[in-house]
Design a protein around this nucleic acid. Sequence first.
DNA 1: GTGTTTGCAAAGTGTTTGCAATTTA
DNA 2: TAAATTGCAAACACTTTGCAAACAC
Lengths: 141, 141
Amino acid sequence: MANMAYDTPEMDAGARLKAARLRPTRQRLELARLLFREHDRHVTAESLAEEGARMGVKVSLATVYNTLHQFKAAGLLRQVVVDASRTYFDTNVGDHQHFFVENEGLLIDIPGEEISVSGVPNPPQGLTIDSVDVVVRVKRN
Amino acid sequence: MANMAYDTPEMDAGARLKAARLRPTRQRLELARLLFREHDRHVTAESLAEEGARMGVKVSLATVYNTLHQFKAAGLLRQVVVDASRTYFDTNVGDHQHFFVENEGLLIDIPGEEISVSGVPNPPQGLTIDSVDVVVRVKRN
DNA sequence: GTGTTTGCAAAGTGTTTGCAATTTA
DNA sequence: TAAATTGCAAACACTTTGCAAACAC
């Protein structure tokens, strides 16, 4: 099984956790199943906990927070900073950017091939670029 | 009290408030003087309150929050969303972007002429672009 | 068994709010 | 004097933490 990416949609939750070296606990398995059921999901801890509750997944909010951060650390999720008061996580860890609908808290993907940023100057001495994040803030008219 | 100069910091701040149709209270005047003393300042409510305290400006934290939001609403400040846990305000309301040094909470301006974003798709039906924000996340090596 | 993970409730952070007192126009 | 503003403390929303019980290996 050469070159299988950690985040291929067809990978099942158990394999995903194994690849990430996270113990396949019931909570992590069930949250992973929810999260990676679709390829591009944007969730907050609260929205995921609610969804879990709706789907009969019994997980505490603290565990949802822990799990999201562990998944992020493992490269399974990407954190998206668009709102000062909530943290969003994106199941699409590939190169892409976002529209953010303010007042609705809604994220919409912009494929990485469509958008490009040029003219980024070299960062000041001693600093290295980690990522270039673009947020296109939009509002409903 | 004769001869009040037209370009004292007081007059500057007063004119700014007048233009923004905000009553020139002592608190707003003093905060405006701190804020607009330099052209490109990045502050959080807390950092501004601390600075005020250091400079002998007596203002409650609640008023600092209120004032920052009023100044933002008046177009005197721009809000910068880079960190899920703090809100930054920028005294430079012109076209520009930012480096953000994670773990230090430090913002560094990137002039608008240097950087450019192309290929931003039309937003979905019913949505209008408000702003295109670029954050270049960097870390110290 | 041993180390990891979970859940709860408590604590923490940054921010907003209710309201009486104060200030501005 | 009427309307806006302030400061305090309490309320808030989101997130993290401490720790005993439950679980994975």
